[in-house]
Amino acid sequence: MTEDRFSAHRSLLFTVAYEMLGSAADAEDVLQETWLRWAGVDRSQVHDPRAYLVRAVTRQALNRIRTLSRRREDYVGEWLPEPLLTHPDVADDVELAESVSIAMLTVLETLGPVERAVFVLREVFDMPYDEIAEAVGKTPATVRQVARRARGHVAARQPRVRVTRLEHKTVMDRFVAALHTGRIQDLLDMMAPDVVLIADGGGITAAALAPIHGAELVATMLAGTDRAAFETTAVWLNGAPAIRIESGSGGAAVSLVIENGRITRIYATSNPQKLTRLEKPADLTR
């Protein structure tokens, strides 16, 4: 029975932990720690296993964040969330797809640990304030204030308009075609003037150590790529159409943010330690 209850909510618990941590590997560790504690609980005293387990995962994730923050202080270059291969139907739940997007996870990284937990539990999973308060060790009144502050922080930094699945895929396909031509003008036609490219090589692969700003610089850099040395595959990453690149020097996962038919953000992850979840789709749910 213990295994059945935990297994029934495993996808949900993984999604909560992943959204809080931005790392599938760390999310799996948090689930393991939660399982060990769940196995020793007197379940006759647990009236709502789902709520209990979400609170337990949240506490473990908060503990893990403190460790990760120290690790990321020494990270080489820009840090991006670990991309996940997902089923296309994740996009059917628009709010879930938005919450697990690379763009959103990058924004959540700018929140403090408690703010991030409160935002995820309230805005994504619609948990009551009193349950969130128990999970994060704050009063319900404080949690309401934290939620309001986190909501404003995220709203100021997330894309202003939602893009349909078809529009996203259309722009992505044109971007891939432009990559293969290598013509700067073709790339410029796809990008907003203030486009930003953020690359994460983790000091293991060659990648820009700071964000590259502006269409001219981004297009020039992309046009200089050896087109004969890489192959591109359309995939679904984090609930949206994306690109997987394979080359002799390694691979990369590329996600785009699109507004008004133009690319405004390019997230390129080439750190091989973050490309281990691109073979089997992750089970994400709310």
Rank of each mutant, 00 (worst) to 15 (best):
V161N: 11
V100K: 14
T58C: 06
S101C: 05
R72F: 05
H153W: 06
A117V: 06
D89Q: 10
M127I: 00
R59D: 06
N63H: 11
M127N: 00
R70E: 15
D126W: 12
L96Y: 04
L111T: 01
T86S: 13
V114A: 11
Q158R: 14
D93W: 02
E131D: 09
R151P: 06
W79M: 11
R165T: 13
M104Q: 08
A103N: 14
K138T: 05
M104I: 03
A155K: 12
T106F: 01
R144E: 15
H153K: 06
G152V: 03
T139I: 02
E98M: 09
I65E: 13
A133V: 08
V118W: 03
T142V: 15
G112W: 04
A91D: 05
A56L: 12
I102W: 09
R66V: 01
S69K: 09
L68I: 14
V57Y: 00
D93Q: 02
A61Q: 04
A147G: 09
E167K: 09
R151I: 04
G152P: 10
L96M: 02
R72V: 09
T142D: 13
E134D: 04
V90A: 06
V114K: 03
T86C: 07
V154D: 03
D74A: 04
R165Q: 02
V100F: 06
V76P: 10
R149W: 01
V100S: 13
A61M: 02
V124C: 07
R59G: 15
Y75L: 10
T110M: 07
V124S: 13
A61H: 05
G152I: 02
T67S: 09
S101D: 11
T110A: 14
V57K: 07
T139W: 10
Y75I: 01
M104C: 05
E123G: 00
V163I: 02
S69Y: 06
I65S: 15
R66Y: 00
V90N: 11
N63G: 10
R122S: 03
R122E: 10
D89T: 14
A61I: 00
A97S: 14
D130Y: 15
F125H: 15
V94P: 11
P113L: 01
E167G: 07
P159Q: 08
R162Y: 00
R149Y: 04
T139M: 04
V146R: 02
L84W: 09
R116Q: 12
R122F: 11
P113K: 01
R157W: 03
R66D: 11
T58M: 06
P81W: 06
R70D: 04
E95R: 13
V76C: 03
T110V: 08
D92R: 14
Q145K: 14
Q60K: 10
I132T: 15
H153A: 08
E78C: 04
A133D: 08
K138L: 12
G152W: 00
R157Q: 03
L166Q: 15
